[in-house]
Nucleic acid binder design. Structure first.
Lengths: 261, 261
DNA sequence: ACACCGAGTGTATGACATACACTTCTGCTC
DNA sequence: GAGCAGAAGTGTATGTCATACACTCGGTGT
């Protein structure tokens, strides 16, 4: 209950940049150790015991610095969600909102893929840590010149951000089992299960190979490609911005390349 | 490992519709009890011990019928994801793909909202249970007459399905803490945290009330409205279908009403 | 009569988060 | 220096969890 929304906000917003002691435990050392564990072994590898062990202290010592494990997870997220250098400045001048959003998405993607565990965090509720807000701010900033209402901007940002999150989650899930092989496995399984009678449309799609990669796809590209979905979404946003504009004055949607996974 | 993809598929596809014994435990009784627990107390309320207790058996008895808790969760999902009556038939004739998809989304929404825990399932990987495939089939079916490649149909379905999932998750998260009040709390918190300097665009949005509900919104409507995002996505899909079509022959995107949460 | 088998039981293990009472160490005041 | 307060770290204990494994039944087929 008390752990829900205002969970350790003091920590996040105030204690966060306190000087680091020369010796002993510290908040940042704890968070760093936890992030390392998660990076290498996934979220399951993060237990209070293991974090403490890695630092050479006892489990309970962590609670001097962190109210609960949940709070630690929040701190991990915040620490890992630092803005990349090219986005550090709030007011970059770029009046192509689409390009701006695409860049933003690429940066999100890099971050989400660098720390795949993010998408499995049991954190519930809207973003609230400083760095999360920073990302949100930058996304809103890309829509500066569009004439959308603030409310619609928020809607668009939510839509895009959630899409990237989902895409990253899908990729993480696919990659987990057998790094690329799992897609083939899935495709085969589907083929075996999907009955023509009960699932005609599915059957058609399977037989057309819609769940396979083209045979010549190199191994390292066998991950979910977020660009198809993102292009559709941005096209939709563009159409929304153009509503009311006479047809022949509209900026054309991209209608770009096809891709799917 | 063995628990990942082929987890209990035999159960899901074969043992599932076996006759129910008059007395004692049975797979369906276990699943039903577990679903009831989840419906009323969330996923955390589902422990093997509690499920067994509710049925008047010992914890370990469940393992006669279920290989692991993970499998039980999968079975719960499948059981709850039955198609609604209006979608039971595979080949409904409807050549308005957009209407079809919107209907599909509404049905998904009903299901996801009726069992809010679905969106918090730790299940990883693509859909594989019979009823999940059925939903996928119906979604693909709505795109029958569109001329999209099967691959693109899958892409669109994935996009839309994931969006609904995310939207439901957002709603569940918002509703959890304090049923509607939490949005106000969030908005207030944001207002307090968002510094003009660091987050100018965010500040602007907050001050414009983009994170608030209009004051006159009745309590029961204070949940995330998925229609804004969905409309954008479908507009984008429509644009994709229209690519190559001369401008003046295109079907107009909706560019509909504004909404956000 | 007996052997077997499937359903349900009981007990045990090891991971986990965390409460609470304890010690030890550090630096401040007189 | 002497004494002390609070901070930092420790140890032990509790309760919850999934699940392994060895068991006891009460049939049923021979």
């Amino acid at each position: 209950m008390d752990d829900k929304l205002p969970a350790g906000l003091d920590l996040l917003w105030q204690r966060l940049d306190q000087p680091e002691p020369r010796t002993g435990l510290s908040l940042s050392r704890i968070v760093r150790a936890a992030v390392e564990l998660a990076d290498s072994g996934g979220l399951d590898a993060v237990s209070m015991a293991r974090v403490a062990e890695r630092l050479g202290f006892t489990t309970m010592s962590l609670y001097r610095h962190v109210k609960s494990k949940n709070e630690l997870l929040l701190l991990m997220l915040n620490s890992v969600a630092a803005l990349p250098a090219e986005m550090a400045e709030p007011a970059e001048s770029c009046d192509d909102w689409r390009l701006g959003l695409e860049r933003w998405c690429r940066a999100q993607w890099v971050m989400l893929r660098a720390h795949a565990w993010i998408v499995h965090l049991p954190i519930t509720g809207p973003p609230i840590t400083p760095n999360q807000l920073a990302w949100t701010d930058r996304a809103l900033g890309t829509l500066r010149g569009t004439g959308l209402t603030e409310s619609d901007k928020v809607g668009v940002v939510l839509l895009v951000a959630n899409y990237m999150h989902t895409a990253a989650r899908l990729t993480a899930d696919l990659g987990e089992a057998a790094s690329g092989e799992s897609i083939a496995a899935y495709s085969g399984l589907l083929g075996a299960l999907a009955d023509e009678r009960r699932f005609p449309a599915l059957r058609t799609a399977i037989d057309a190979g819609a769940f396979d990669y083209p045979a010549d796809t190199p191994e390292e590209e066998r991950q979910f490609d977020y660009s198809f979905g993102l292009a559709r979404i941005l096209d939709g946003v563009a159409a929304f911005m153009n509503r009311g504009t006479p047809e022949n004055e509209r900026i054309r949607p991209e209608g770009g390349a096809t891709a799917s996974g």
